[in-house]
Every structure is written in structure tokens, then in C-alpha cells.
Simulated assay, not measured.
Amino acid sequence: MKKLVIFLFGILPLAVLAQNNLGSANDYDRIALDVFIPEQVESIPEHAKSLIISKLTNAITEKGMAGAGASPRFLVTAKMELLTKDIAPTVPRVETYTFDIYLYIVDHVDKTIVSSTSFTAKGAGSNANKAYTNALRTLDLKNQKVDKFLDDGKRKIIEYYNSRCDFIIARAKSLATQNQFADALATLSGIPEVCKDCYMKALDEVGPIYQDFIDHDCQVMVNVASAVWASQPNSDGAMAAGAVLSGIDPDSRCYSESRTLIGKMEQKVLKDEKRDWSFMREVYQNEVMLEALRIKAFRDVGVAYGENQQPTYVYDIMWVFR
């Protein structure tokens, strides 16, 4: 649990030096964009798709914008449209294709295009796949046109967060009240550091939502462990319940309740089976065994293990390709 939140907020250092200065080159370091082309896109052969993703990733890496953000609302994608196709009656056969290549930065939540640019490319080969690949190999994305494309996207992303800050924070709070804590934290962590005022407001909300997060999960784990122990009040039940309780964050408000339950189990197992709590050491030292016991315990009492612990992302950008 704690590892998840550390991951989510690794990009949110407490010392904030950012300014809302669109001209600062360092601003790129605070806006991370992931490159994504849906598997369902059939107009680009697989090898060509991998090549264009690689070239796009390299281009945004050069600008310091590569890497998925904790809440990757904004994505970079590309599509290719065939303009001409010529087949030369030669041996070996040569197919020549001309394409328009479109690059987009999109808001996949609101389904809007934030920035775009396009190129025309030509490639030839013995088949369509080789022609596509050869066209992309000659494509240079490290140029002023791509720089402007990324600059425009960066500016509009910053404008989005600055203008909709209160709405974004309200959305995060709403998710938290629905026990969708990971999504709430991911929503807050997606605010770039460069948007200083909004970023600071988000930081103010992180602590309370995180506390609610670990408190909620603590109570779920205590309830699951109690149910497991009630149905199997012996060393096997204690092992399963203890595995569940070991996942509780010590900072949660019901942590003491979990320790009380462990104490009760320890006393009963010692009394009935003459075994002290040292039999749990093997479990605690084996992460694979511990995880397996946790999952089984949750299933046994009909609770979804890990529910709402991971942010949910559905990258539906097929509308770009229609």
C-alpha cells in the first residue's frame, strides 16, 4: 500500500520551486507524456507501429518530456493515412507508398486534440510492411515543426490545469468519498509542478486522502482477518489472518486493533497447540507465500483483494483514428 503512494507521489517533491513561467526550459521536466497507439489500429503494420512509437519516444525524450505521469491524462499518438500506392512491374516487385503522418497530443479523458502536426513521407519495398518501415526510417522528428508541436501541447496542458484546478481537486475529493482512493491520488498527482498554485492546492489534499486510504484498507483487512480467524481458530487460520494483517500500514488509525487481534490469536494458538508466534516468521520472510495467503484469505470471505488500490486507466483514443 505504502509503496503505491510513494510511486504516485514520487513526482511531487515537498520543496516546490516551480513558477507558472511558460518560457522556462525546465518546465518540460515537470510534464510527462506517454506515447500510445492502440492495438486495434490496423492501418499501421505492427513493425511500423513499433518504429514510430520508438521515434516519438526519442523525440519527446530529447525535450525532457518522456515517461508516463502518475495520472497520464495526456498522451502522444500518431496515425498514418495512405495517399498513393504504386506497384512497379519489375523483378523483384517494388511497391512505393506515399503517406500523411499525423502526430497528436490528446486529452484521452475529454476526447480532445491538444496539439497536432503532420508530415508527408514516401517509402518503397517488396511489400507494404517494408514500404511503411522504410518511410518511417527516413522520418526525422527532431526538428522545429515537432518542437512547436510539443511547445503548443505543453502550453495548453499548463493552461488546462491552471484554469480547471478547482474542478480537478473537487473530482479527486469525489473519488475519495467513493473509496476510489488510488484514482483520487492519481488525479492529484497528475497536476504538473509547473502549475505552482494548483500543485500546492493538490498537495494540501494529499495527506487527508492518503490517511482515509490507509484507514479504509486497514478496516477492510481487519474485517477479513477477523472473519478468517472466526472460521478457522487455529494455527492455519492464524497464519492466513496474520498474512492479511501484515499488509496494514502502521500509520492507519486501526493499526492498534490489528495488533489486538494478533495478540488474541497468539494466545489461543499457544494455549491450544503449544505453539508460539514464531511459526509465523517463515511466512513473514517469504513474500510469495505471504501474498498467496492474503489472496486466499480475501477470496475465502468474498472480498476482492486489492480493490481500489490501483488507479484505473482506460486509454480510449480510437476516436482519433476514425
Rank of each mutant, 00 (worst) to 15 (best):
Y104H: 14
D215I: 01
F119E: 11
I191P: 06
A186T: 04
K201P: 08
D217Y: 10
V194T: 15
D152F: 04
K130A: 14
C218T: 06
L103G: 10
N127H: 10
F213V: 00
L82E: 15
Y210T: 07
P192F: 02
Q180N: 14
F149L: 03
I169Q: 08
M200Q: 15
T84S: 15
I158C: 09
N143T: 06
K145R: 14
E81A: 11
D204Y: 05
R155Q: 12
I105G: 08
R171E: 15
K173D: 12
F181G: 00
R171A: 11
R137S: 08
D166R: 08
I209R: 02
C218F: 03
S189F: 00
D100L: 05
T133N: 11
I157G: 11
F149R: 09
K145I: 08
A131F: 02
V91F: 14
Y199S: 13
R93W: 00
T120Y: 04
D183G: 02
L82M: 12
K201A: 13
L203F: 04
L188A: 07
G125R: 06
K156E: 15
K85E: 15
E159N: 12
K156N: 10
L83F: 00
K148E: 12
N143P: 05
K122N: 13
A124R: 12
I169H: 07
L136H: 06
L141C: 06
Y102V: 01
P92S: 07
D215L: 01
V94A: 07
Y97W: 10
T112Y: 05
P89Q: 12
E159K: 12
K142D: 14
K154V: 06
G153R: 08
S174L: 08
D204K: 15
V114L: 03
G125L: 02
T96G: 04
Q211V: 03
D215G: 04
R164T: 14
K154E: 09
D183K: 01
L103K: 11
L82A: 09
V94P: 02
K130G: 06
T187R: 11
E205C: 07
V106H: 09
Y161D: 11
G207R: 13
A184E: 01
S163C: 00
K148I: 01
Q144S: 14
V146K: 10
F167T: 15
T98H: 07
D110P: 00
K196Y: 08
F149W: 09
D151P: 00
A184H: 02
F181A: 01
A182L: 04
A170C: 02
C198P: 06
V109A: 07
I157D: 10
I168V: 13
I168D: 08
Y104L: 02
A128C: 00
M80C: 06
I169S: 07
P208Q: 04
K156D: 14
Y132E: 10
I105P: 11
M80A: 12
K130W: 10
D107T: 06
T112H: 11
A184R: 02
V109H: 09
